[in-house]
Design a protein around this nucleic acid. Structure first.
Lengths: 221, 221
DNA sequence: ACAATAAAAGTCCGATCGGATGGTTTTTTG
DNA sequence: CAAAAAACCATCCGATCGGACTTTTATTGT
């Protein structure tokens, strides 16, 4: 499996429309760059103040541009939120793939499951995944956000599942068990992320060992 | 284990100060009742609009009292948030205990671990636990909330762990494994709760079976 | 070069936030 | 019954939110 093939396929299916334009026109190039900077500033505000801190005022101040400029690129706040959601899912996938594929390149393809599990846990420490958590929880009580978030989440999930089947041929005979293992790791790691401030690192590390054992058990069952 | 003993011990350690007063004076009784109604209305707003929706205006409107009355009972918003945090942890423990102890009363004490696991998952469907999730995530990016939330979370965890040791004598020889199982169920269920909108009920049900298997495996190891 | 277009800036508005203040009703107390 | 205290109510204030608007600057097309 060539590294570029897998990356291209998974990221291409999630890439926001913004980033697909060719940089022919100078102004268009400038525009897409500013849009990206706005989205990144929005994520910074999301991390700094939660979904409630995702305000047009703060984003503009954080980026040092006027609110009028922001309004030119994102006419309404909902447009910006939609772009942030797209970007967060894309970045989440990209971060995992970078870690996972470099892990394979370094450690070989003997323990793909262990490499993937460890990469998944590391990718959850990222700011992008923290932004995902903020959005996922906010979507539970914000209908407008949910209307944007849930379709993106399902799209991400579909890409994830189909690529799992593609990338782990040794599981192909029991791809139901593999899907279960994948779902399990996702849920366990997410819960561990949120409970870590309460449990502390030592207990979380024990849980990481348990999660690995369970995945190994599913693989050899 | 008498039902009242366990309830008394665990809930007593978490009971908010409000609910401990004796109803001697009529006015004091009225006051504590109003405080409780305000906290419950606050939780309703928390569920309806997330932590950002937890505003003094909305709470007063939802309850039908004036903001001045609210300000009499909770001089500042932070005081109210602190009371909400206390109440959420208390209600979370109470809900689990109700389900768990009635499960024991109905099904006997043969499968305590299975009963506890199922009761834990059911208690997570409650509104009080949804409020806990909102607060836990908001505390990640709100220092003022975190200063109130994390100590309460640790207190809840300490009560939980010590009571686990007390209540499952058959695990006593390997109480480290039991603590690991408890942490595991907490994290797995929390992740499942947040991923359910994406995964759907069928996959979550499969995960529930896997979680039960893992806990059984830890028990018989 | 010059009109058209895109990007960015600056300003105003209504709504709502948390907090503060002063007045009213109800209960307790002497 | 009258004074004190507690519970409750009605507004006002400064700050900040999202959105609409006009103006200025930079780039593009002819």
């Amino acid at each position: 499996m060539a590294r570029s093939t897998m990356q291209q396929r998974m990221l291409g299916a999630l890439r926001p429309a913004d980033l697909e334009a060719e940089p022919e026109r100078w102004q268009q190039q400038k525009s897409t760059r500013t849009r990206l900077r706005i989205v990144e500033a929005a994520i910074a505000c999301l991390l700094g103040g939660g979904y409630a801190g995702l305000t047009t005022h703060r984003i503009a101040a954080h980026l040092g541009i006027s609110r009028g400029a922001m309004q030119h690129h994102f006419p309404t706040r909902d447009d910006l939120v939609a772009a942030v959601v797209e970007h967060v899912f894309y970045a989440r996938m990209r971060l995992f793939l970078d870690d996972y594929l470099s892990g394979i390149a370094q450690a070989g393809e003997d323990n793909l499951v262990e490499i993937a599990t460890a990469a998944h846990w590391r990718s959850m420490q990222s700011e992008e995944y923290a932004a995902y958590v903020e959005l996922a929880v906010a979507a539970r009580s914000d209908a407008a956000l949910r209307a944007v978030f849930e379709p993106a989440a399902r799209r991400y999930d579909e890409v994830w599942v189909s690529e799992m089947i593609e990338s782990f041929p040794q599981w192909r005979a029991r791809w139901e068990a593999m899907k279960l293992a994948s779902d399990f790791v996702t849920c366990a790691h997410l819960g561990m992320l949120l409970q870590r401030p309460t449990f502390g690192d030592a207990r979380i590390e024990q849980l990481n060992g348990l999660v690995s054992d369970v995945v190994r058990g599913l693989y050899h069952a």
